[in-house]
């Protein structure tokens, strides 16, 4: 890993990282503030009148909205959070290789005495750091502000959310980085990564309302993201850990290997 490159990467992403972090902190704060109000009767009645398919869109089926887990999944962590963090992570990953090649700045960076391996590992380390930051910006405010509104999450649950959320981002980011190591344009790498994610989300949505479609769930990263269940005290299945872990490790390693062997100008 190269510290100069890591510092430069952090510096160049500071503005977007700042705004995503602030946005997530405020969103998390808002959710724990609203939960006591929304867990009251009128909200429940409203939800009961909604079609199951709509509830499924927000990942709220099988959870019950009167629970903190159900509320957080439906209103925040099930869909909106995924959209926010995946946007941030995909943009970063797509820019890491393909973006720099497309912009022509890779030629400048790699005319300096930094090895490609070091360059790629540094960019991957940046992705890990970014995922940890966004995870912290999401879950720490729930833990910090929650008690003021009588929303309390056990430390073990917080830790699981934090680590599992980070793993989810690394699985998505690793895939985007793999595409970035192949293409010459951040736009193309990012668009394909986003397209695949939307396809997975759609597949998950269909599987929520159609039993035959559940066949894809075991390999669908979106289907495995069930923060509501974690908040409600359910254990994260081992296969979910494995899926995220293997996907993140394989895609990041693949991105590093491909980058060290490709043309960069």
């Amino acid at each position: 890993m190269n510290l100069t490159l890591l510092r430069a990467t952090v510096h160049r992403n500071r503005a977007s990282a700042f705004w995503f972090t602030v946005g997530l902190v405020l969103y998390s704060w808002l959710m724990v503030w609203l939960y006591p109000v929304f867990s009251q009767g009128e909200y429940q009645e409203l939800l009961e009148r909604m079609p199951q398919e709509i509830i499924a869109v927000f990942g709220g089926q099988n959870l019950g909205f009167d629970t903190l887990g159900g509320f957080m999944q439906a209103e925040y962590l099930g869909l909106m959070w995924m959209l926010i963090v995946c946007s941030a992570i995909i943009v970063y990953a797509a820019q890491s290789f393909a973006g720099e090649i497309g912009d022509g700045t890779m030629e400048f960076a790699l005319s300096q005495p930094v090895s490609r391996l070091s360059y790629a590992i540094t960019k991957a380390a940046g992705l890990v750091g970014y995922a940890l930051l966004l995870s912290a910006a999401t879950f720490v405010p729930i833990q910090v502000f929650g008690p003021r509104y009588e929303v309390e999450i056990e430390a073990t649950v917080f830790l699981q959310l934090f680590v599992f959320g980070t793993m989810f981002m690394l699985a998505v980011g690793g895939f985007a980085m793999l595409l970035s190591s192949v293409f010459r344009s951040a736009g193309r790498a990012g668009a394909i990564a986003a397209g695949v994610l939307v396809t997975l989300w759609t597949a998950d949505l269909v599987s929520n309302v159609s039993e035959p479609a559940e066949v894809f769930d075991p390999i669908n990263v979106v289907s495995h993201w069930q923060p509501g269940k974690i908040i409600n005290g359910e254990a994260i299945p081992a296969e979910s850990w494995w899926l995220y872990g293997v996907l993140a490790a394989v895609t990041l390693a693949g991105a590093v290997v491909i980058f060290t062997k490709r043309d960069v100008a």
């Binding site: 160049r12 912009d103 400048f108 005319s111 930094v114 090895s115 490609r116 060290t260």
Partner: peptide, 27 residues
């Protein structure tokens, strides 16, 4: 492709100058 030591001894100015637009010369 990974000639770090070599690039330490070379100075290169590209034909089409592409630098980081938002950063200063000092950066």
């Amino acid at each position: 492709l990974d000639g770090t030591g070599l690039r330490r001894r070379i100075g290169y100015v590209a034909g089409e100058v592409r630098l980081y637009d938002k950063e200063t010369g000092r950066w």
